[in-house]
Amino acid sequence: MSVATVTVKDFQVDYPNDWCPGCGDFGILNALQQALAGLGLRPHEVAVFGGIGCSGKTQYYVNAYDIHTLHGRVLPYAIGAKLANPALTVIAVGGDGDGMAIGAGHFVNAGRGNLDLTYILFNNEVYGLTKGQASPTLPLGAQTKSLPEPTIQSGINPLMLAMASGYTWIGRGYAFDIRGLVRLIQQAIRHPGLAFLEVLQPCPTYNNLHTKAWFAGKDRGGLPRYAPLEPSYDPVILPGTDEATLQARMAAFIAEATRSEEPIRTGVFWENRAVPSLGERLVQRLPNYLSEPPAKKAVADGHGRPVVDLEPLLAEVAIR
């Protein structure tokens, strides 16, 4: 049987795009479509959940099941769908405000489950859609275009928060390094657990500090301010990795995730294969979880009668 190959066209959709010209979101969208096609997924097998913000519109332009959720809630909606239908490839996308401010509680708690989905955070350091207020990732003292005064709150480091929360795959990419981003998104999707990908995303309209030109190092002879992690950096934790190695890898992670010197590192920062996925844990608890997941559960017989036999439960409370 010949299988029709999936191309990037299968994930593209004709729909007018209202992002500002030059927005980093275009790069991420492009990379996401290529990544999905490259993995050979078929559009109906993919569900892309978006938060609220400019970033939260990404799925409008992806030919797949696309769900525009509520501000900050992208992860819980995505988690519910993935838990109920583990066969779906679930991607969640959203802004730094969406994920690190109003949705921060969900971000942290999602780390506990290691559910097999991919969360892409668009870090532009501002609230794009509400006209450029400081987002939780804007560093202390920075003053982007819309701010009447420099911010007097510090910025959150999303990679560190992901590590502290238990994400088992953590990466960082840059919105206009599309080839690098395609690879990272594919690795994140293939990782059999919860993957977090931070994408540095220029917002030409409101973030006048960290622009495309700044990332490209135009002011310093074209030496980009982002660069891949050194080849010697090893993010992988395997089952049975000894404590000393684990500690060393974690220390290296922290050094790279928090480094204040340029370049800003991109690549796979953490890949922990020692933690069982939530799906595996659920199979231990609900033996037919994979054969009859919640989405496929038989509820009624041909006559519209319940298929469940309550007898043992009634017996527990029956007075005979």
């Binding site: 959720t69 519910g80 838990l83 239908n85 979880y289 997941p293």
Partner: peptide
């Protein structure tokens, strides 16, 4: 046979209503 319900304790009720809705979109009675 047997039949199961997945009970999911969330981090708050914002997430509780959202996860149940996400599950319902897949066809699960939620």
């Amino acid at each position: 046979g047997t039949s199961s319900v997945l009970v999911w304790q969330t981090e708050d009720e914002l997430a509780a209503v959202a996860t149940a809705s996400g599950a319902a979109l897949t066809g699960a009675r939620s």
